[in-house]
């Protein structure tokens, strides 16, 4: 019985690590997505260039390859990251690169008349973005962003491969010690499902709140 509780603790410990990685990497992803997404709406080629390359690089390979590269290859050029730092940076940059497209698309999707109206009201460029364009783009970003946060959670098991003791890592350890493969893996599948569903539920709520006024009619009000 006490052994069972030991295993339960390992699973809980691992869940906590998974949550930590997910939350911190999500923050990184949001920052990456906003910075590169906004920069890619610039009319200046030189401002778009760097972010575009960054995003294409991270979307052109899988997160797993990037994680290994950051953990095993980077030290050869003198950069050694702890497993946690490598995990949150790579997961954040990877998911943020997909988010970049979401941000760019949402900003580009705000009708031109909105910008023109804010010019006519003499808003500065920054005020136009902050008070008119961004709040409207944000509503369009939320549904795809929710899916990306779930994607990010689903990438966290990869960090077990670079020695993070996350949910997957600890479950595999339990599996080895107890031999009950089915129970260990079924438990964490359900665990990930519940966490994904929690994210979906939370984003759904935020979405309903943020779309006040926008839901009852066409965007071009």
């Amino acid at each position: 019985m006490s052994q069972f509780s030991d295993y339960a603790w390992m699973i809980l410990d691992g869940t906590w690590v998974t949550v930590k990685i997910t939350v911190v990497a999500s923050v990184v992803a949001v920052i990456v997505a906003l910075l590169t997404g906004v920069a890619r709406t610039s009319k200046f080629f030189w401002i778009r260039l760097g972010p575009t390359l960054f995003v294409e690089l991270f979307r052109g390979t899988s997160c797993y390859v990037q994680l290994f590269w950051a953990f095993f290859a980077l030290p050869f050029i003198g950069i050694s990251l702890t497993p946690f730092v490598a995990s949150v940076l790579v997961l954040g940059a990877n998911v943020g690169s997909y988010g970049s497209e979401v941000v760019r698309g949402a900003i580009a999707g705000v009708p031109r008349g909105q910008t023109e109206a804010s010019v006519a009201l003499n808003f500065t460029k920054l005020q136009r973005f902050r008070h008119v364009v961004f709040p409207q783009a944000l509503v369009a970003m939320l549904p795809p962003a929710g899916n990306l946060f779930i994607d990010l959670l689903k990438l966290t098991p990869l960090t077990s491969l670079i020695t993070m003791s996350d949910l997957t890592y600890n479950a595999m350890a339990v599996r080895q010690q107890t031999g009950s493969t089915f129970i260990a893996l079924a438990t964490i599948l359900v665990g990930y499902f519940l966490m994904s569903s929690a994210i979906a539920w939370a984003i759904g709520r935020i979405e309903r709140r943020a779309s006040r006024g926008l839901e009852t009619g066409p965007r071009a009000a």
Binding site: P111, G113, Q114, E116, A117, V119, A120, L121, N122, T124, K125, H131, V132, P135, Q136, V139, R212, G213, L214, G217, R219, A220, A221
Partner: peptide, 25 residues
């Protein structure tokens, strides 16, 4: 841009398609 900003102070415009801000009351 600062000059345009200073000049726009004198002028207001009403559009064919209203262009109200949908996220504000």
């Amino acid at each position: 841009e600062p000059h345009l900003h200073a000049m726009r102070r004198h002028i207001g415009m009403v559009f064919q398609h209203f262009n109200l801000f949908p996220h504000m009351t």
